[in-house]
C-alpha cells in the first residue's frame, strides 16, 4: 500500500503545482492593462477536444484502479485458510480490547482457551486472522504500523488478517468514535517468536476466562 501512496503523491503533487502555476501565470500575464483585451473563446472548436480531455483523465485513473484492486484483494478477499492462520477473537467494549486465543486444541469455547485485555500477542512470520464482534457500539480495530483497519460491529462478525515480518511492540487504536473514552481505547500489540507467544499464553492462563464478559460473545464457538 505504501508504494501506491507514494506513487499517487508523485502524480498528484505536480498536478496541484501545475494548477497553481497556471493561475499565477494568468494573474501576471493576463492582468488588466491598457490596450489588452480578453480573447473571445467559448470552448473547444470541435467535440474532439472534450473527448480527448475526458479520455486523458480516464487513462490517468484506470491504472490506479487496477493496482489498488490487487492490494485490496490481498487485504480483504484472499484470507488465509483456517488451519494455516493464528486465529484470535476480538471482542471490544467501551473502552477496552478483549482478546481470546483458542489454546493448544485450536478450538474456541473449550476450557483451554486463554483471554487477555488490551494485550495482543501474535507470532511473527505467520498469517494472523482476527475474528471480531463488538459487545456494545461500533469500534474500529486499527493497527497503524501494519496498515490494518476494520470496523468491529455488534451483531455481525468482521475479520481482518495480516502477516507480520518483524518482531516488536506496537499500539492498537480505535478508529471509530465509540464514546467518551474513545481517545484512550488503546491496546498493545506484541509481535514475537512463536515459542514466546505460546509461553506468554501459558502465563496468562492463570487469569482464566471472564465469563461475565465472554458469555456475551454471540459469534458461535467456531468463529
Amino acid at each position: 500500500m505504501d508504494w501506491l501512496f507514494t506513487l499517487m503523491t508523485w502524480v498528484t503533487l505536480p498536478l496541484l503545482a501545475a494548477v497553481v502555476i497556471i493561475l499565477l501565470y494568468c494573474i501576471v500575464r493576463y492582468r488588466q492593462r491598457d490596450g489588452h483585451k480578453a480573447a473571445y473563446i467559448t470552448g473547444f472548436r470541435t467535440p474532439w477536444g472534450l473527448t480527448v480531455l475526458c479520455g486523458l483523465f480516464l487513462l490517468m485513473e484506470l491504472p490506479f484502479d487496477f493496482y489498488q484492486e490487487k492490494i485490496w484483494a490481498d487485504a480483504r478477499k484472499h484470507r488465509p485458510a483456517k488451519g494455516e492462520a493464528f486465529v484470535v477473537q476480538v471482542f471490544p467494549e467501551q473502552f477496552a480490547w478483549n482478546f481470546r486465543y483458542p489454546g493448544p486444541d485450536g478450538k474456541f469455547g473449550t476450557p483451554d482457551d486463554v483471554a487477555s485485555i488490551n494485550e495482543l500477542h501474535v507470532p511473527v512470520g505467520r498469517p494472523v486472522l482476527t475474528v471480531m464482534r463488538s459487545k456494545d457500539v461500533v469500534h474500529s480495530f486499527f493497527l497503524p504500523h501494519l496498515r490494518v483497519k476494520q470496523d468491529v460491529l455488534p451483531g455481525r462478525t468482521t475479520r481482518a488478517w495480516f502477516e507480520a515480518t518483524k518482531t516488536g511492540e506496537f499500539e492498537v487504536g480505535c478508529a471509530e468514535l465509540c464514546g467518551l473514552g474513545h481517545y484512550r481505547m488503546r491496546g498493545y500489540l506484541t509481535i514475537e517468536e512463536p515459542k514466546k507467544v505460546v509461553a506468554w499464553l501459558e502465563s496468562q492462563r492463570v487469569y482464566g476466562i471472564d465469563e461475565s464478559k465472554w458469555g456475551y460473545w454471540t459469534g458461535g464457538t467456531d468463529d
Partner: peptide, 24 residues
Amino acid sequence: VIFVTGGLSGLFNAMAAIDVYVHD
C-alpha cells in the same frame, strides 16, 4: 486551488486499498 487540492487527495481515499489506512 482548494477544490483541486481536495479533489486530488480524494483520489487517494477513493481507492479502497489506501482508504484502509487513511480512513478515519
